[in-house]
Design a protein around this nucleic acid. Structure first.
Lengths: 159, 159
DNA sequence: CTCTCTAATGAAAGAATCTTCCGAAGGTAC
DNA sequence: GTACCTTCGGAAGATTCTTTCATTAGAGAG
């Protein structure tokens, strides 16, 4: 065998497939095969394995937020009342149910969590902030950073 | 005509197509047509228009960062020396060239910019922080928030 | 070195899909 | 009513997908 089990290293061809699919997830298998330099059959097998083994978690269309009433981006730092595992778990369970949360990360530093939120506009955010965010379990305070300009958003991974 | 020009409103079918492609960007046209409830020909025409007119900015495979040596996520707040347009422009031009920057947003609040960065590990970040981040033009100070747990990352837009 | 075994490869072919053309249906202005 | 415009679904040739199969390359044992 080539590797132990989980950390199966990617060879040059697998890496090329991942890079191309990250760049354009709708590439046909035959086009992908040409770009990668293998036959369509081999490319098909490789790609299917990369999906099956979890290297690719999904393929998603990148919809322009402005076109679907989600033009406003907001970053929010959250501090909880208590730093107990139960408190964290309750917060995380609740926040997973909010559809406007794009990112939620537990961080080390002045905040407990960092949120990335997309809404229609500032008025929409203020409404959601008052009715949903500060109502989350255990929230002591929040600090809001309105995004005035999206310089880079969701860049692809360089590897 | 139905709408003025830019703000062309999406009808129910367009919205369904966008939602399905955001969920699974590799859906075949025939499967997509079944899910949306139109003929393959109509679905093809609609989808092609949504891409052509910019509703869909791209389709990207979501690669598991742990599989490609990008398991560490870091949020960084940046304050610049001066708040001049030239200073902002220089910073933005420089940061667009750094491949490990996933997000970079100009914000209102205690920081000028918020960054989202993916690297291999903390040691990797410390090296890049010292050699690349604080060397960016006009950077007065940075505040680093290591992500200890990714609760939600890159959720799809709910609309 | 040679043999064997395993895993991966590319050619091939039937099945499925894509892409475009065409006539029809529905709505609107006059 | 009539002409016009847009969007629709069916149809069909071109293309692609997906699997099968024989072959090749490489590792390990003797």
């Amino acid at each position: 065998m080539k590797e132990s089990s989980e950390g199966t290293q990617l060879d040059r061809i697998d890496s090329k497939i991942l890079r191309q699919l990250q760049r354009d997830g709708r590439l046909s298998n035959s086009d992908l095969a040409k770009l990668v330099g293998v036959s369509p059959a081999t490319c098909h097998r490789r790609t299917e394995r990369l999906f099956r083994e979890g290297y690719v978690r999904g393929v998603h269309a990148d919809i322009d937020p402005k076109c679907i009433e989600r033009g406003a981006l907001v970053m929010v730092g959250v501090v909880l009342d208590r730093s107990t595992p139960e408190s964290f778990a309750a917060f995380e369970t609740a926040i997973r149910k909010l559809p406007f949360i794009l990112d939620c990360h537990l961080v080390a530093g002045d905040f407990d969590y960092f949120l990335k939120i997309r809404v229609r506009d500032m008025a929409d955010f203020n409404r959601l902030h008052g009715s949903q965010l500060i109502a989350l379990p255990g929230v002591r305070q929040t600090r809001t950073f309105f995004v005035m300009k999206e310089v880079v958003d969701g860049a692809i991974l360089d590897f």
